[in-house]
Amino acid sequence: MPTGVALRDVREQLFDAAERVLLRDGPSALTSRAVTTEAACAKGVLHRHFADFDAFLAELVLDRIARIEDQADTLRDSAGTGTVGGNLAGALTEVFGPVAVAIVALVTSRDGLRTRLRQAQVAGIPILAEATAMIASYLVAERELGRIDADAAIDTLAPTLIGAGHLLFADRSGDPPEADAVRKVVDTVVGRS
């Protein structure tokens, strides 16, 4: 491995390398050696920036959670525009990109990572919990605008949409679902377009 070469934004380079390994080879292949090899840097680089590999993975997950929080702002701001079904289908397609689906599998397969995330006050299954909150926030905004029923059970609708969306996108080896399939699930759950 190269040494003495200055790396720019080491954290992002390592995160990007971890994502590539995760997508290509799955959660079981994600090791510190695989990440640093993919990032073309010495193994010590990862350990200079993170206490251990589970700390690195926890930071990766937290970084990806922050991206969902940004997406939540965009989705909430879309309330009152387009169609509810179209907005939700787009949000599900975006949130369940290959990296997010792979991260859910990673979290469920690594006890040490789940422990770190609990220590960081991350509740539920990361990515899925934040995506549920994102959908719920959007549905509240749409309910306030009168675009969904005033008595809509948002605490039921949001996790149902996330669960159904995750099942649609969870096959790592297959193609993502067609837009019509996502929209059909949304319309079935929400009952509106």
Rank of each mutant, 00 (worst) to 15 (best):
A105V: 06
Q121T: 05
S78G: 14
T108L: 15
L106E: 06
A131S: 14
Q121V: 04
T108N: 13
R110N: 10
L60K: 03
A136F: 01
D111S: 15
L161H: 06
T115P: 02
S78E: 15
A51Y: 10
A158P: 04
R114S: 14
A136L: 04
G163A: 10
R172Q: 10
A79D: 13
R48F: 14
A170I: 02
D171H: 11
G146F: 04
P177V: 08
N87Y: 02
R64D: 12
F53P: 00
D54E: 08
R147P: 05
D77A: 15
V101R: 06
L46A: 10
V101E: 03
A133E: 09
A58C: 07
F169N: 02
D63Q: 13
L128Y: 07
T74P: 00
D70N: 05
A133H: 08
A89T: 00
L161W: 06
S78R: 15
E59G: 12
T81D: 15
V61H: 01
D52W: 10
A42G: 12
F169P: 00
R76Q: 06
G80M: 14
V107N: 08
S78Q: 14
E144M: 09
V61M: 03
T83V: 13
A42E: 13
A150L: 14
P177R: 08
D151R: 06
V140E: 07
L60S: 05
A179N: 05
A131E: 15
R114N: 08
F169H: 11
G80D: 12
A129I: 02
I103S: 01
P159R: 09
R118M: 09
A102G: 03
E130T: 05
S173T: 06
L157D: 01
A153G: 05
N87A: 14
D151P: 00
G174F: 12
A102D: 01
E142Y: 09
T93F: 08
G165H: 05
E142K: 13
C41Q: 05
D171W: 13
R118P: 07
L106A: 11
A133N: 12
A91V: 07
V101A: 06
